[in-house]
Design a binder for these strands. Structure first.
Lengths: 351, 351
DNA sequence: TTGAAAGCGCTAACAG
DNA sequence: CTGTTAGCGCTTTCAA
């Protein structure tokens, strides 16, 4: 007695190349080639195969394809945050470019946590991404995982936030120059009691901004008051806390260079809370632009970090590297910035 | 003469299960099991294998694993935008939950374009994701691709923005109730000349908000002025344009229910441009909360849409469905909202 | 222009 | 507790 094979509901089998091949009486490989538009196959056959595939609702299996081809056409992106205009704008552009260039992108968010970041890079390597764009988490001190990627010959591009690593691809903003510009501007306005709410200085952006700050002060012959240089992180709370600390010490400056836009928001919150007016009682400027800054009270001036350029140059660099793994020479790209002046940092308000 | 195999630099071969197996003199499958912590394998062997894998720098091949296991442990997420607090906050929570539940997530952004959205869903199906969470693009009118996913037995959860589709999983906010609450509040404040800058009404959120608006007006015996109900999209420009249109017609209302936060920003821009003050000359409230609304001038009141709940309930529902594909009954989950009152929509400003 | 052979790296099912 | 067999769906040689 023959056993009847029950084609139960669970097994709604997906159409494979083979199914199409059988139905058409050709070989699997012919179908494979036709579907990819390979010139080997005659136009007529290609047409027929494509049509049949459509009718059957064929959907190529990405896993199988990548496995066999040893290429995933996928890039990984590791960002420290996503719910922050700077990064969401960047990722937005990255998706666009990737789409145009036929790449899939795997985005992961480390939440400023180096442990997570490491796991995520491992996962990305595990998915055999062709390359990775990464903006490192603020607490990154261990670079081993980057070396691992390198050893595996998976190209890396560090974007905006780069580690202290010799010979790697970087695409960053001229942070030092930008900080210099901002402080220079403030001093020319008349400010003298100038503070810097800095981020982590183990990350390039924190360090560079700090350097630019000091350089501008020096060049103008101004001393830096150490209690006005506060290292924190890049978040809102950090801005709030730093402000409050100085307020309690009755040691508030006239002007603050805020290391990020969220930090500036923290300063706004704190100032509002203690009844101090911006820019009259205390003035500031921050790094990072976003549309809503126009509608803050007062509109917040900033150093613009061009997200589209960051995204585009990072992608180009990465793809360039992917297409030439063997003798690629790492590049370090620096992008210029400009001051965007709105309601803060535009005039000296103390008499 | 024997040919010498040259192990050139290009071929930095990745370690495979087999390599580990050979080195240890065990079988591939033993290694496979050990690495996955399968109870079949003795503790000692497992330890040894894990150690060796580490030393060799083994990284499992996700493609091969998924292909063989017929399960990718990956979910797809399709969002209409990302550079917008509402969505970036949601995706943030989704990543967190996915990580905790051992899922990889593939995020795609449709940019409010149904064509793109379709391609992206196809790509996701091609990657054999286990399920998809989607917030549909504003111009979605064709639901075929959703049916396709259904046919392929890939569970779908529509989040926040849901299509007119019978029998599907949805997680949404009580938009009608929220709009009602907002308008009810405005009317009680004393407003009578009330407008609604609506989004696309082919999408549930646009339609529901519109319904709530009308219902509240009706219940208070107020007539709706048709020229004050403007359908547009969910973006900033739409808010700006609608405002300007009414301004030019000299037909401005007292109060606007703005369909999203970006639309409200558009209204702020327009008002500023023509020298009208909010909330004194014209008042408003919008859907969607974000921290910065506190710092707008004036602070913008809103209907809060709890992003964490949206993310969590969507993920739970999806995973529940994935784990029980066969006899899962679709669910429709509705989340309550609340008014967050700040500097707008708090008092009637006309005499 | 088409196809056959071989294998990508892994795992399920079962046998020992 | 360990291993064998078979195959996931596709593509890359290379031969016909």
């Amino acid at each position: 007695m023959k056993k009847q094979k029950i084609n139960n509901a669970q097994t709604t089998k997906l159409i494979t190349l083979n199914d199409i091949a059988k139905k058409l009486g050709v070989s699997t490989i012919t179908v494979s080639k036709a579907l990819r538009g390979h010139p080997d196959i005659s136009k007529a056959t290609t047409e027929l195969i494509k049509k049949t595939a459509d009718e059957l609702g064929y959907s190529p299996n990405f896993m199988a394809r990548s496995l066999a081809a040893r290429k995933s056409n996928t890039i990984g992106v590791v960002l420290p945050q996503i719910d922050h205009h700077f990064f969401s704008s960047i990722i937005d552009h990255i998706y666009n470019i990737a789409f145009a260039r036929q790449y899939q992108v795997f985005l992961t968010v480390s939440h400023e946590n180096a442990e997570m970041q490491k796991k995520q890079i491992q996962a990305l390597l595990s998915m055999r991404v062709d390359g990775i764009i990464i903006s490192v988490s603020q607490d990154t001190t261990d670079f081993e995982i980057f070396e691992t990627a390198k050893k595996r010959r998976v190209p890396l591009v560090f974007m905006d936030r780069t580690p202290d690593l010799a010979d790697c691809n970087t695409v960053a903003v001229d942070d030092m120059g930008a900080a210099y510009k901002a402080i220079d501007h403030a001093i020319k306005l008349g400010y003298r009691k100038i503070a810097h709410f800095a981020g982590h200085t183990n990350i390039n952006i924190g360090r560079e901004r700090m350097l630019g700050f000091h350089q501008a002060m020096n060049n103008h012959g101004l001393e830096v008051n150490p209690s006005w240089v506060i290292e924190g992180d890049f978040g809102e709370k950090s801005g709030y806390d730093s402000f409050m600390q100085l307020y309690r010490e009755n040691n508030l400056p006239d002007f603050i260079l805020s290391v990020t836009y969220p930090t500036a928001i923290g300063i706004y919150t704190a100032a509002q809370e203690v009844g101090l007016r911006i820019p009259d009682d205390i003035d500031l400027i921050c790094f990072g632009n976003s549309e809503v800054q126009n509608f803050l009270s007062p509109p917040l001036s900033c150093v613009n970090q061009p997200t589209e350029q960051l995204a585009a140059k990072s992608m180009n660099l990465l793809i360039e590297n992917i297409n030439n793994i063997d003798n690629f020479k790492n590049k370090n790209i620096v992008i210029d910035t400009e001051l965007i002046l709105r309601g803060t940092c535009v005039k000296f308000n103390r008499s």
